[in-house]
Design a protein around this nucleic acid. Structure first.
Lengths: 234, 234
DNA sequence: CAGTGGTCTAGACCACTGC
DNA sequence: CAGTGGTCTAGACCACTGT
Protein backbone atom coordinates (compact mmCIF):
# COMPACT_ATOMS: atom_id res chain seq x y z
CA UNK A 1 0.00 0.00 0.00
CA UNK A 2 1.31 3.43 -0.95
CA UNK A 3 1.82 6.14 1.57
CA UNK A 4 -0.63 8.48 -0.10
CA UNK A 5 -3.34 5.83 -0.37
CA UNK A 6 -2.75 5.07 3.25
CA UNK A 7 -3.07 8.73 4.22
CA UNK A 8 -6.13 9.10 1.99
CA UNK A 9 -7.81 6.25 3.82
CA UNK A 10 -6.93 7.72 7.18
CA UNK A 11 -8.31 11.12 6.25
CA UNK A 12 -11.42 9.47 4.88
CA UNK A 13 -11.87 7.60 8.15
CA UNK A 14 -11.32 10.81 10.07
CA UNK A 15 -14.15 12.41 8.10
CA UNK A 16 -16.50 9.51 8.73
CA UNK A 17 -15.68 9.06 12.40
CA UNK A 18 -16.14 12.73 13.14
CA UNK A 19 -19.32 12.82 11.07
CA UNK A 20 -18.05 15.77 9.10
CA UNK A 21 -20.82 17.06 6.86
CA UNK A 22 -20.85 18.96 3.58
CA UNK A 23 -18.81 22.12 3.86
CA UNK A 24 -16.84 21.11 6.96
CA UNK A 25 -13.29 22.37 6.76
CA UNK A 26 -10.31 20.03 7.03
CA UNK A 27 -6.94 21.04 8.51
CA UNK A 28 -4.49 22.83 6.22
CA UNK A 29 -1.99 20.99 4.07
CA UNK A 30 0.92 21.68 6.39
CA UNK A 31 -1.09 20.62 9.42
CA UNK A 32 -2.07 17.37 7.72
CA UNK A 33 1.54 16.85 6.64
CA UNK A 34 2.62 17.19 10.27
CA UNK A 35 -0.04 14.96 11.80
CA UNK A 36 0.49 12.16 9.28
CA UNK A 37 4.25 12.70 9.15
CA UNK A 38 4.61 12.87 5.38
CA UNK A 39 5.68 15.61 3.02
CA UNK A 40 3.27 18.25 1.83
CA UNK A 41 3.27 16.78 -1.67
CA UNK A 42 2.16 13.41 -0.37
CA UNK A 43 -0.78 15.07 1.37
CA UNK A 44 -1.62 16.77 -1.92
CA UNK A 45 -1.59 13.37 -3.62
CA UNK A 46 -3.81 11.88 -0.92
CA UNK A 47 -6.32 14.72 -1.16
CA UNK A 48 -6.28 14.33 -4.94
CA UNK A 49 -7.46 10.75 -4.50
CA UNK A 50 -10.26 11.87 -2.21
CA UNK A 51 -11.19 14.65 -4.60
CA UNK A 52 -11.56 12.39 -7.62
CA UNK A 53 -13.62 10.06 -5.48
CA UNK A 54 -15.97 12.92 -4.71
CA UNK A 55 -15.19 12.96 -0.99
CA UNK A 56 -13.75 16.46 -0.75
CA UNK A 57 -13.13 19.59 -2.78
CA UNK A 58 -10.33 22.07 -2.46
CA UNK A 59 -10.51 25.83 -2.80
CA UNK A 60 -7.28 27.59 -3.51
CA UNK A 61 -6.56 30.28 -0.95
CA UNK A 62 -9.27 29.03 1.34
CA UNK A 63 -9.10 25.41 2.40
CA UNK A 64 -10.20 21.84 1.92
CA UNK A 65 -13.84 20.93 2.49
CA UNK A 66 -16.02 17.86 2.69
CA UNK A 67 -18.11 17.33 -0.45
CA UNK A 68 -20.14 14.27 0.48
CA UNK A 69 -23.52 14.24 -1.16
CA UNK A 70 -25.08 10.86 -1.62
CA UNK A 71 -28.41 9.56 -2.71
CA UNK A 72 -29.34 6.11 -1.62
CA UNK A 73 -29.74 3.42 -4.23
CA UNK A 74 -27.79 5.22 -6.97
CA UNK A 75 -24.81 3.37 -8.37
CA UNK A 76 -21.66 5.29 -9.15
CA UNK A 77 -20.84 4.77 -12.82
CA UNK A 78 -17.38 6.26 -12.66
CA UNK A 79 -16.09 3.58 -10.33
CA UNK A 80 -14.99 0.57 -12.34
CA UNK A 81 -16.00 -1.71 -9.50
CA UNK A 82 -19.34 0.09 -9.36
CA UNK A 83 -21.94 -2.55 -9.00
CA UNK A 84 -19.83 -5.06 -7.21
CA UNK A 85 -18.50 -2.88 -4.45
CA UNK A 86 -21.69 -0.99 -3.77
CA UNK A 87 -23.92 -4.02 -3.88
CA UNK A 88 -21.85 -5.84 -1.35
CA UNK A 89 -24.17 -4.30 1.20
CA UNK A 90 -27.25 -5.54 -0.60
CA UNK A 91 -28.29 -9.10 -1.13
CA UNK A 92 -27.19 -9.57 -4.72
CA UNK A 93 -27.60 -12.85 -6.55
CA UNK A 94 -27.56 -14.17 -10.10
CA UNK A 95 -29.28 -16.88 -12.08
CA UNK A 96 -27.29 -18.27 -14.99
CA UNK A 97 -29.44 -18.73 -18.09
CA UNK A 98 -26.69 -19.88 -20.40
CA UNK A 99 -22.95 -20.47 -20.21
CA UNK A 100 -20.94 -21.78 -23.13
CA UNK A 101 -17.59 -21.66 -24.81
CA UNK A 102 -17.82 -20.39 -28.37
CA UNK A 103 -15.93 -18.81 -31.21
CA UNK A 104 -16.35 -15.06 -30.76
CA UNK A 105 -19.00 -13.57 -33.04
CA UNK A 106 -17.58 -11.01 -35.43
CA UNK A 107 -18.93 -7.91 -33.68
CA UNK A 108 -17.43 -9.06 -30.38
CA UNK A 109 -14.14 -9.92 -32.09
CA UNK A 110 -14.02 -6.42 -33.45
CA UNK A 111 -14.74 -4.82 -30.09
CA UNK A 112 -12.19 -6.98 -28.29
CA UNK A 113 -9.69 -6.27 -31.04
CA UNK A 114 -8.50 -9.57 -32.39
CA UNK A 115 -8.41 -10.77 -35.95
CA UNK A 116 -7.91 -14.51 -35.59
CA UNK A 117 -10.63 -16.78 -34.34
CA UNK A 118 -10.56 -16.78 -30.56
CA UNK A 119 -12.54 -18.70 -28.01
CA UNK A 120 -14.67 -16.77 -25.56
CA UNK A 121 -16.96 -17.64 -22.71
CA UNK A 122 -20.50 -16.45 -23.35
CA UNK A 123 -22.65 -15.93 -20.29
CA UNK A 124 -26.23 -14.85 -20.02
CA UNK A 125 -27.59 -14.27 -16.57
CA UNK A 126 -30.29 -12.47 -14.67
CA UNK A 127 -29.20 -10.54 -11.61
CA UNK A 128 -31.36 -9.95 -8.58
CA UNK A 129 -31.09 -7.35 -5.88
CA UNK A 130 -32.92 -8.28 -2.70
CA UNK A 131 -34.61 -10.95 -4.84
CA UNK A 132 -36.05 -8.41 -7.27
CA UNK A 133 -34.90 -8.90 -10.88
CA UNK A 134 -32.51 -6.10 -11.62
CA UNK A 135 -30.89 -6.69 -14.99
CA UNK A 136 -30.23 -9.16 -17.79
CA UNK A 137 -26.58 -9.46 -18.71
CA UNK A 138 -24.87 -10.94 -21.75
CA UNK A 139 -21.13 -11.05 -21.39
CA UNK A 140 -18.13 -12.29 -23.38
CA UNK A 141 -14.79 -13.13 -21.74
CA UNK A 142 -11.64 -13.82 -23.73
CA UNK A 143 -10.61 -17.35 -22.92
CA UNK A 144 -6.90 -16.58 -23.13
CA UNK A 145 -7.40 -14.24 -20.18
CA UNK A 146 -10.13 -16.11 -18.34
CA UNK A 147 -9.19 -19.76 -18.93
CA UNK A 148 -11.91 -21.23 -16.76
CA UNK A 149 -15.42 -20.33 -15.74
CA UNK A 150 -18.32 -22.39 -14.52
CA UNK A 151 -21.92 -21.96 -13.50
CA UNK A 152 -21.16 -21.79 -9.82
CA UNK A 153 -18.74 -18.90 -10.29
CA UNK A 154 -21.10 -17.14 -12.70
CA UNK A 155 -23.95 -17.38 -10.24
CA UNK A 156 -21.91 -15.33 -7.80
CA UNK A 157 -19.61 -12.39 -8.46
CA UNK A 158 -17.52 -12.95 -11.58
CA UNK A 159 -15.74 -9.73 -10.75
CA UNK A 160 -14.49 -11.09 -7.43
CA UNK A 161 -13.38 -14.28 -9.15
CA UNK A 162 -11.37 -12.31 -11.71
CA UNK A 163 -9.67 -9.99 -9.27
CA UNK A 164 -9.21 -12.23 -6.26
CA UNK A 165 -8.74 -15.71 -7.66
CA UNK A 166 -7.27 -15.05 -11.10
CA UNK A 167 -5.45 -11.92 -9.88
CA UNK A 168 -6.55 -10.03 -12.98
CA UNK A 169 -6.02 -6.28 -12.76
CA UNK A 170 -8.84 -4.35 -14.40
CA UNK A 171 -7.46 -0.97 -15.27
CA UNK A 172 -10.18 0.98 -17.08
CA UNK A 173 -13.52 0.66 -18.80
CA UNK A 174 -15.67 2.29 -21.45
CA UNK A 175 -19.42 2.40 -20.82
CA UNK A 176 -21.96 3.29 -23.49
CA UNK A 177 -25.53 3.83 -22.45
CA UNK A 178 -28.81 4.32 -24.21
CA UNK A 179 -32.47 3.38 -23.88
CA UNK A 180 -33.70 0.16 -25.43
CA UNK A 181 -36.78 -2.01 -25.56
CA UNK A 182 -37.06 -5.44 -24.03
CA UNK A 183 -37.90 -8.44 -26.14
CA UNK A 184 -40.30 -11.05 -24.88
CA UNK A 185 -37.65 -13.25 -23.31
CA UNK A 186 -35.91 -10.41 -21.48
CA UNK A 187 -39.20 -8.96 -20.30
CA UNK A 188 -40.01 -12.35 -18.84
CA UNK A 189 -36.82 -12.42 -16.81
CA UNK A 190 -37.37 -8.90 -15.51
CA UNK A 191 -41.07 -9.46 -14.83
CA UNK A 192 -42.05 -6.68 -17.21
CA UNK A 193 -44.03 -6.41 -20.43
CA UNK A 194 -42.58 -6.96 -23.89
CA UNK A 195 -41.43 -3.63 -25.40
CA UNK A 196 -41.08 -2.03 -21.97
CA UNK A 197 -38.07 0.30 -21.88
CA UNK A 198 -34.73 -0.65 -20.38
CA UNK A 199 -31.52 1.19 -19.70
CA UNK A 200 -28.86 -0.57 -21.76
CA UNK A 201 -25.21 -0.30 -20.92
CA UNK A 202 -22.56 -1.74 -23.18
CA UNK A 203 -19.21 -1.96 -21.44
CA UNK A 204 -15.70 -2.90 -22.41
CA UNK A 205 -13.21 -3.74 -19.70
CA UNK A 206 -9.46 -3.42 -20.16
CA UNK A 207 -6.50 -5.01 -18.41
CA UNK A 208 -3.71 -2.96 -16.91
CA UNK A 209 -1.74 -3.42 -20.13
CA UNK A 210 -4.57 -1.87 -22.10
CA UNK A 211 -5.96 -5.03 -23.70
CA UNK A 212 -9.75 -5.33 -23.83
CA UNK A 213 -10.81 -8.72 -22.48
CA UNK A 214 -14.52 -8.43 -21.73
CA UNK A 215 -17.55 -7.07 -23.50
CA UNK A 216 -20.96 -6.92 -21.83
CA UNK A 217 -24.40 -5.78 -22.74
CA UNK A 218 -26.57 -5.24 -19.71
CA UNK A 219 -30.25 -4.34 -19.79
CA UNK A 220 -31.48 -2.80 -16.58
CA UNK A 221 -34.99 -2.91 -15.20
CA UNK A 222 -36.27 0.60 -15.78
CA UNK A 223 -37.42 1.05 -12.21
CA UNK A 224 -34.24 -0.25 -10.63
CA UNK A 225 -31.71 1.51 -12.84
CA UNK A 226 -30.44 4.49 -10.91
CA UNK A 227 -26.97 5.75 -11.58
CA UNK A 228 -24.92 8.74 -10.67
CA UNK A 229 -21.81 10.36 -12.06
CA UNK A 230 -19.63 12.81 -10.21
CA UNK A 231 -18.04 15.27 -12.58
CA UNK A 232 -14.92 17.28 -11.86
CA UNK A 233 -13.85 20.32 -13.77
CA UNK A 234 -10.37 21.70 -14.16
CA UNK B 1 -2.19 28.53 -18.34
CA UNK B 2 -0.15 26.08 -16.29
CA UNK B 3 2.92 24.40 -17.61
CA UNK B 4 1.46 20.93 -17.27
CA UNK B 5 -1.78 21.84 -18.99
CA UNK B 6 0.27 23.38 -21.72
CA UNK B 7 2.38 20.24 -22.09
CA UNK B 8 -0.75 18.06 -21.94
CA UNK B 9 -2.23 20.01 -24.84
CA UNK B 10 0.96 19.72 -26.83
CA UNK B 11 1.15 15.97 -26.30
CA UNK B 12 -2.51 15.66 -27.19
CA UNK B 13 -1.87 17.59 -30.39
CA UNK B 14 1.12 15.40 -31.13
CA UNK B 15 -1.11 12.34 -30.87
CA UNK B 16 -3.73 13.79 -33.17
CA UNK B 17 -1.35 15.18 -35.76
CA UNK B 18 0.53 11.92 -36.03
CA UNK B 19 -2.73 9.96 -36.11
CA UNK B 20 -1.54 7.72 -33.31
CA UNK B 21 -4.02 4.91 -32.84
CA UNK B 22 -4.95 2.74 -29.89
CA UNK B 23 -1.90 1.04 -28.45
CA UNK B 24 0.69 3.36 -30.02
CA UNK B 25 3.55 3.98 -27.67
CA UNK B 26 4.57 7.45 -26.59
CA UNK B 27 8.15 8.45 -25.75
CA UNK B 28 9.38 7.74 -22.23
CA UNK B 29 8.97 10.20 -19.37
CA UNK B 30 12.55 11.40 -19.53
CA UNK B 31 12.40 11.82 -23.30
CA UNK B 32 9.20 13.85 -22.98
CA UNK B 33 10.77 15.88 -20.16
CA UNK B 34 13.68 16.70 -22.44
CA UNK B 35 11.67 17.58 -25.54
CA UNK B 36 9.24 19.85 -23.66
CA UNK B 37 11.97 21.17 -21.36
CA UNK B 38 10.19 20.60 -18.06
CA UNK B 39 10.93 18.37 -15.11
CA UNK B 40 9.93 14.74 -15.06
CA UNK B 41 7.24 15.43 -12.46
CA UNK B 42 5.60 18.00 -14.68
CA UNK B 43 5.41 15.43 -17.46
CA UNK B 44 3.83 13.03 -14.99
CA UNK B 45 1.24 15.69 -14.14
CA UNK B 46 0.54 16.34 -17.81
CA UNK B 47 0.10 12.64 -18.57
CA UNK B 48 -2.18 12.38 -15.55
CA UNK B 49 -4.47 14.95 -17.14
CA UNK B 50 -4.52 13.01 -20.39
CA UNK B 51 -5.13 9.78 -18.52
CA UNK B 52 -8.19 11.05 -16.66
CA UNK B 53 -9.49 12.41 -19.94
CA UNK B 54 -9.24 8.94 -21.41
CA UNK B 55 -6.62 9.88 -23.99
CA UNK B 56 -3.81 7.60 -22.79
CA UNK B 57 -3.02 4.89 -20.30
CA UNK B 58 0.22 4.17 -18.56
CA UNK B 59 1.73 0.79 -17.77
CA UNK B 60 4.37 0.74 -15.09
CA UNK B 61 7.57 -0.83 -16.32
CA UNK B 62 6.44 -0.70 -19.92
CA UNK B 63 5.40 2.67 -21.26
CA UNK B 64 2.66 5.14 -22.08
CA UNK B 65 0.10 4.25 -24.74
CA UNK B 66 -2.74 5.86 -26.63
CA UNK B 67 -6.16 4.82 -25.36
CA UNK B 68 -8.47 6.63 -27.75
CA UNK B 69 -11.68 4.75 -28.34
CA UNK B 70 -14.61 6.82 -29.39
CA UNK B 71 -18.08 6.18 -30.64
CA UNK B 72 -19.72 8.87 -32.60
CA UNK B 73 -22.74 10.59 -31.13
CA UNK B 74 -22.12 9.53 -27.54
CA UNK B 75 -21.79 12.32 -25.01
CA UNK B 76 -19.18 12.04 -22.28
CA UNK B 77 -20.95 12.30 -18.94
CA UNK B 78 -17.80 12.72 -16.86
CA UNK B 79 -16.92 16.00 -18.46
CA UNK B 80 -18.76 18.83 -16.72
CA UNK B 81 -18.94 20.72 -19.99
CA UNK B 82 -20.24 17.58 -21.66
CA UNK B 83 -23.07 18.65 -23.83
CA UNK B 84 -21.85 22.12 -24.52
CA UNK B 85 -18.35 21.33 -25.69
CA UNK B 86 -19.21 18.28 -27.73
CA UNK B 87 -22.21 19.79 -29.40
CA UNK B 88 -20.29 22.77 -30.56
CA UNK B 89 -19.66 20.75 -33.70
CA UNK B 90 -23.33 20.08 -34.17
CA UNK B 91 -26.03 22.57 -34.89
CA UNK B 92 -27.53 22.92 -31.43
CA UNK B 93 -30.40 25.27 -30.70
CA UNK B 94 -32.99 25.87 -28.00
CA UNK B 95 -36.56 27.07 -27.80
CA UNK B 96 -37.53 28.74 -24.54
CA UNK B 97 -40.94 27.60 -23.29
CA UNK B 98 -40.94 29.56 -20.08
CA UNK B 99 -38.60 31.89 -18.23
CA UNK B 100 -39.51 33.50 -14.95
CA UNK B 101 -38.14 34.75 -11.69
CA UNK B 102 -39.69 32.97 -8.71
CA UNK B 103 -39.26 32.05 -5.08
CA UNK B 104 -37.51 28.70 -5.08
CA UNK B 105 -39.86 25.76 -4.50
CA UNK B 106 -39.02 23.84 -1.35
CA UNK B 107 -37.45 20.81 -3.02
CA UNK B 108 -35.14 23.05 -5.02
CA UNK B 109 -34.31 25.10 -1.93
CA UNK B 110 -33.29 21.92 -0.19
CA UNK B 111 -31.12 20.74 -3.07
CA UNK B 112 -29.44 24.12 -3.44
CA UNK B 113 -28.95 24.25 0.31
CA UNK B 114 -30.51 27.45 1.53
CA UNK B 115 -33.01 27.94 4.27
CA UNK B 116 -34.26 31.48 3.67
CA UNK B 117 -36.46 32.32 0.75
CA UNK B 118 -34.31 32.99 -2.25
CA UNK B 119 -35.13 34.09 -5.77
CA UNK B 120 -34.27 31.80 -8.63
CA UNK B 121 -34.61 31.90 -12.38
CA UNK B 122 -36.78 29.08 -13.64
CA UNK B 123 -36.25 28.10 -17.24
CA UNK B 124 -37.98 25.49 -19.30
CA UNK B 125 -36.71 24.89 -22.78
CA UNK B 126 -36.58 22.35 -25.55
CA UNK B 127 -33.23 21.69 -27.12
CA UNK B 128 -32.69 20.64 -30.70
CA UNK B 129 -29.76 18.94 -32.33
CA UNK B 130 -29.65 19.38 -36.08
CA UNK B 131 -33.27 20.55 -35.71
CA UNK B 132 -34.40 17.27 -34.16
CA UNK B 133 -35.87 17.67 -30.65
CA UNK B 134 -33.34 16.28 -28.25
CA UNK B 135 -34.42 17.02 -24.70
CA UNK B 136 -36.73 19.02 -22.45
CA UNK B 137 -34.92 20.87 -19.71
CA UNK B 138 -36.19 22.48 -16.53
CA UNK B 139 -33.52 24.43 -14.72
CA UNK B 140 -33.21 26.63 -11.63
CA UNK B 141 -30.45 29.22 -11.21
CA UNK B 142 -29.77 30.99 -7.93
CA UNK B 143 -30.31 34.66 -8.59
CA UNK B 144 -27.56 35.75 -6.20
CA UNK B 145 -25.11 33.98 -8.50
CA UNK B 146 -26.82 34.58 -11.83
CA UNK B 147 -28.27 38.07 -11.42
CA UNK B 148 -29.59 38.38 -14.94
CA UNK B 149 -30.95 36.09 -17.60
CA UNK B 150 -33.21 36.67 -20.54
CA UNK B 151 -34.85 34.73 -23.32
CA UNK B 152 -32.17 35.54 -25.86
CA UNK B 153 -29.43 34.13 -23.65
CA UNK B 154 -31.52 31.10 -22.74
CA UNK B 155 -32.19 30.33 -26.37
CA UNK B 156 -28.46 29.95 -26.88
CA UNK B 157 -25.87 28.41 -24.58
CA UNK B 158 -26.48 29.38 -20.96
CA UNK B 159 -23.27 27.57 -20.11
CA UNK B 160 -21.22 29.89 -22.31
CA UNK B 161 -22.95 32.90 -20.81
CA UNK B 162 -22.11 31.76 -17.29
CA UNK B 163 -18.48 30.95 -17.94
CA UNK B 164 -17.54 33.58 -20.48
CA UNK B 165 -19.68 36.60 -19.65
CA UNK B 166 -20.33 36.18 -15.92
CA UNK B 167 -16.91 34.54 -15.39
CA UNK B 168 -18.48 31.90 -13.19
CA UNK B 169 -16.22 28.96 -12.45
CA UNK B 170 -18.10 25.68 -12.39
CA UNK B 171 -16.03 23.26 -10.38
CA UNK B 172 -17.95 20.00 -10.11
CA UNK B 173 -21.32 18.41 -10.65
CA UNK B 174 -23.49 15.54 -9.45
CA UNK B 175 -25.61 13.75 -12.05
CA UNK B 176 -28.39 11.33 -11.17
CA UNK B 177 -29.94 9.32 -13.92
CA UNK B 178 -32.93 7.04 -14.28
CA UNK B 179 -35.65 6.16 -16.75
CA UNK B 180 -38.89 8.10 -16.70
CA UNK B 181 -42.08 8.46 -18.67
CA UNK B 182 -43.05 11.52 -20.62
CA UNK B 183 -46.24 13.38 -19.85
CA UNK B 184 -48.40 14.70 -22.65
CA UNK B 185 -46.78 18.12 -22.80
CA UNK B 186 -43.23 16.78 -22.85
CA UNK B 187 -44.09 14.14 -25.42
CA UNK B 188 -45.45 16.90 -27.62
CA UNK B 189 -42.19 18.84 -27.49
CA UNK B 190 -40.13 15.75 -28.28
CA UNK B 191 -42.52 14.56 -31.00
CA UNK B 192 -43.19 11.33 -29.17
CA UNK B 193 -46.21 9.62 -27.62
CA UNK B 194 -47.43 10.22 -24.09
CA UNK B 195 -45.90 7.66 -21.68
CA UNK B 196 -42.98 6.99 -24.00
CA UNK B 197 -39.78 6.46 -22.02
CA UNK B 198 -37.14 9.11 -21.51
CA UNK B 199 -33.71 9.17 -19.96
CA UNK B 200 -33.92 11.62 -17.08
CA UNK B 201 -30.85 13.28 -15.67
CA UNK B 202 -31.03 15.43 -12.57
CA UNK B 203 -27.92 17.50 -12.14
CA UNK B 204 -26.54 19.84 -9.53
CA UNK B 205 -23.73 22.20 -10.47
CA UNK B 206 -21.32 23.64 -7.93
CA UNK B 207 -19.10 26.72 -7.94
CA UNK B 208 -15.40 26.54 -7.24
CA UNK B 209 -16.10 27.37 -3.61
CA UNK B 210 -18.37 24.33 -3.36
CA UNK B 211 -21.73 26.14 -3.37
CA UNK B 212 -24.49 24.56 -5.42
CA UNK B 213 -26.08 27.19 -7.66
CA UNK B 214 -28.01 25.29 -10.30
CA UNK B 215 -30.38 22.38 -10.38
CA UNK B 216 -31.67 20.90 -13.60
CA UNK B 217 -33.96 18.11 -14.62
CA UNK B 218 -33.44 17.08 -18.21
CA UNK B 219 -35.54 14.52 -20.05
CA UNK B 220 -33.85 13.13 -23.13
CA UNK B 221 -35.49 11.76 -26.22
CA UNK B 222 -35.00 8.02 -25.92
CA UNK B 223 -33.55 7.65 -29.38
CA UNK B 224 -31.15 10.57 -29.09
CA UNK B 225 -29.84 9.91 -25.59
CA UNK B 226 -26.46 8.25 -25.97
CA UNK B 227 -23.90 8.72 -23.25
CA UNK B 228 -20.57 7.27 -22.35
CA UNK B 229 -18.49 7.13 -19.22
CA UNK B 230 -14.81 6.35 -19.09
CA UNK B 231 -13.88 4.62 -15.86
CA UNK B 232 -10.42 4.52 -14.40
CA UNK B 233 -9.31 2.11 -11.76
CA UNK B 234 -6.53 2.51 -9.28
C1' DC C 1 18.38 -7.19 -15.52
C1' DA C 2 17.78 -3.08 -18.28
C1' DG C 3 14.24 0.08 -19.12
C1' DT C 4 10.27 2.55 -17.68
C1' DG C 5 6.66 4.39 -14.86
C1' DG C 6 5.52 5.58 -9.80
C1' DT C 7 6.47 7.40 -5.14
C1' DC C 8 8.35 10.55 -2.02
C1' DT C 9 10.95 14.39 -0.27
C1' DA C 10 12.39 19.38 0.76
C1' DG C 11 12.04 23.54 -0.62
C1' DA C 12 11.18 27.71 -3.58
C1' DC C 13 7.79 30.34 -5.40
C1' DC C 14 3.03 31.44 -7.35
C1' DA C 15 -2.14 32.45 -7.17
C1' DC C 16 -6.11 32.94 -4.96
C1' DT C 17 -9.54 33.96 -0.84
C1' DG C 18 -11.35 36.49 2.50
C1' DC C 19 -10.82 39.43 6.27
C1' DC D 1 -1.93 41.20 3.47
C1' DA D 2 -1.88 36.88 6.02
C1' DG D 3 -3.23 32.31 5.21
C1' DT D 4 -3.91 28.50 2.20
C1' DG D 5 -3.85 25.60 -1.81
C1' DG D 6 -1.21 24.86 -6.39
C1' DT D 7 2.90 24.50 -9.35
C1' DC D 8 7.43 23.21 -10.33
C1' DT D 9 12.02 21.46 -9.68
C1' DA D 10 16.01 18.04 -8.91
C1' DG D 11 17.02 14.07 -7.31
C1' DA D 12 16.82 9.59 -4.72
C1' DC D 13 14.78 5.40 -4.70
C1' DC D 14 11.00 1.83 -5.57
C1' DA D 15 8.10 -1.49 -8.43
C1' DC D 16 6.87 -3.49 -12.37
C1' DT D 17 7.39 -5.40 -17.48
C1' DG D 18 9.28 -7.89 -20.83
C1' DT D 19 13.11 -9.80 -23.09
Amino acid sequence: MNKYHDVANKINLFIQENNLTRGSKLPTLTELANTYEVSKNTIIKALEVLETNGVIYQVRGSGTYVRGRHRKGFVNLTDVQGFHSIFREFNLSSKVIELKEIEAPSNVAEILEFTDQEKVYYIKRVRYIESRPFCVEESYYLKTIVPYLNEEIASQSIFNYLTEDLKINIRFSDLFMRIGKLNQEEAGYLELETHDPSLNIESIYYLSNGRPFNYSLIKYHHEEAQFFVQGNNF
